[in-house]
Write a protein that binds this DNA or RNA. Structure first.
Lengths: 221, 221
DNA sequence: AACTAAACGGAGGGAGTTCCTTCGCTTGTT
DNA sequence: AACAAGCGAAGGAACTCCCTCCGTTTAGTT
């Protein structure tokens, strides 16, 4: 992903990827304060390897965040390519993929403490997030113009829904969690779908904007 | 709640209630392994007070679970009383209340390790859960017969939805979480609502049964 | 108002986690 | 085959959490 990656030895590159993928899962389950040793253990690498690649926790978090954003971008490309004339299908397909991949694309948007890193980053993370948001918004609008996505929905509704759905319930097995998530996702898709809901029961509320979300996060010291 | 409660001194009874309420919130956020000291701190009582009232963690968990079930029962009564001829409104009203109260009625259903306590309990907890489930199922069916709740939904879908919605996202403030949860709840209600969805896009799946859920939980050692 | 039993909170020792570094061995690359 | 790069395990320091002990405070009673 990063250019420095290309200079790594093959096994190092493999382990690096493994760590990021595992970290995504563990962060999703336990939050970003999860023990790094558990991430290493579940990734099947020594703790030293993790520290060698990611000197401290913020670095790891930022890499996971960047990786998430890139992955969502790729999936978005693919979904649109596979459904070029059908924005709703592309969106539904995308969401199913994202949930299955357990991506928390919103993480970098929501997690405070990342703020510092975003700034240290020169704003790269935030810029990429905004870019992705724009693309998602375009898809959303297209689906609404097709009349198949409920009016009044924003990408924020959708993203947050995916995050809440992806988040496994603590204390129960992975298989049961997957089952539950799948079932709930289909319900969620129903709530997004327009068909006749639109006229029948329009969303009556002031939608949350991205700026507003950011302000909330910033205010919280 | 319990008869032994009546023998407690007024301040003790007050603190006991406070601890249970706080424990519900903390368990919801962090899972049932959350530090007891945080529960005590957030409840504004000393750690000794918590231990005096609840000698060990399982005892506290069971009390919280029982309290949750009782509370949901009361809310169910109220919702039905307020909408005697309108099951769908009663259901929607109930869900809004439950989310706002941050009740995780399903907790005792989902959390393993509680299994032992359920048995030690002589099955009281499980019996009450099943009883509540039956009542909820009756309401569900009624709303479906009205043609206002989507066909194919079970109380499990609804309960699990409430749990996932109630669960706050980690690392962001309580106020933002509340905002997000409210917005997502309205979406969720939309997905439950029939209106015209029914004919347009019936739920095509095998629903999860309560027995099946229990079996999953038991299997997981 | 005074008394007493009940309840309270905080301090602190001990057990268990988590962090993060050091170091001798292994492996990919040329 | 040689060597640089990468690897995992062990372990000390710091921290967290559990749970009890004990001196102080408070609710309820006479």
């Amino acid at each position: 992903m990063t250019e420095s990656t290309t200079r790594l030895r093959a096994d190092a590159r493999r382990n690096r990827e493994l760590i990021i993928i595992t970290a995504r899962e563990v962060f999703l389950e336990q939050g970003i304060l999860a023990p790094l040793e558990e991430i290493a253990r579940r990734a099947g690498v020594g703790i030293a390897t993790l520290y060698r690649r990611f000197p401290d926790r913020p670095t790891l978090i930022r890499q996971v965040a960047l990786d998430n954003l890139a992955l969502v971008g790729e999936e978005l490309d693919r979904a649109i390519a596979e459904h070029p004339d059908d924005a709703w299908s592309a969106l539904a397909h995308l969401l199913r993929r994202l949930v299955r991949l357990r991506i928390t694309a919103v993480m970098p948007m929501l997690v405070p403490g990342l703020e510092d890193d975003i700034r240290a980053d020169g704003g790269t993370l935030k810029a990429r997030r905004n870019q992705l948001y724009d693309r998602l918004e375009r898809l959303t609008r297209a689906a609404q113009q097709e009349g198949r996505l409920r009016q009044g929905l924003t990408p924020i509704d959708i993203w947050l829904g995916v995050v809440k759905l992806s988040r496994p319930l603590p204390g129960i097995g992975a298989d049961l969690n997957e089952l539950i998530t799948d079932q709930q996702l289909e319900l969620f898709l129903g709530s997004l779908h327009a068909v006749a809901l639109d006229a029948a029961e329009p969303l009556r509320r002031r939608p949350l904007t991205l700026d507003e979300l950011d302000r909330h996060l910033k205010r919280r010291e």
